[in-house]
Design a protein around this nucleic acid. Sequence first.
DNA 1: GCGACAG
DNA 2: ATCTTGTCGC
Length: 228
Amino acid sequence: MEKYELLYQEAIKLELMSVSEAKEFQNNLRKMLSFCDFNISNDIKILGLDVSYKNNLSKASAVVFSLKDKEIIQTSVSRCAVRFPYIPGFLAFREVKPLIAAMRDITVDFDVVMVDGQGIAHPRRAGLACHIGYILKKPTFGCAKSRLFGKELGELGPKKGSFVALVDKNETIGAVLRTQDNVSPVYVSVGNMINLTNAIEITLKCSFSRIPEPLKIADKLSKIMAEV
DNA sequence: GCGACAG
DNA sequence: ATCTTGTCGC
């Protein structure tokens, strides 16, 4: 059986859930997550995941980026019928299955997963990156282009690398991070098996423009797929 | 009731 | 996310 077949079967269950079932699933998921240290070396490989849409079809892409060589070493894609609507807070039930399907042809090893969306910066601490990280059992974090939940603690500096905490009550749930001088920030939050400091460092190491390279390439690839 | 709201 | 032209700014 193929490497991701069992995970795909699990992913199918998500898009068949009702919103109330989805909410309950997330409240259970949050208890299953762990946020440990991740050792960042100079030659880690990062899996970038993104989804595009066209005519009620989702086009997902998975790309493996080598931090040492600064290049993509493998890509894989999927095309699926959309089965779950976009509802803020429930993106995982729309995108996890296409994303797992997109990994079908990934055969090289990767160390960490970067997802286009939130991790625990979510009302129930269970964003898309948490679902992916829990299913894959790999260090995973989210890097989103806009905010879903939480408030910024303080003023963000203009230089690359500056960040402020994204908080809810007294809890830090993510970071608003500047990936280049004078560009709008991205929203980084952990998904599973990694801590926020690691996630910020990895994001900065692979950012050569506003959007970190693994997501930039994954976005480009999924959009090309969407046109076909 | 009102405003906010990943992709 | 997607629909969409030109255009302001570095």
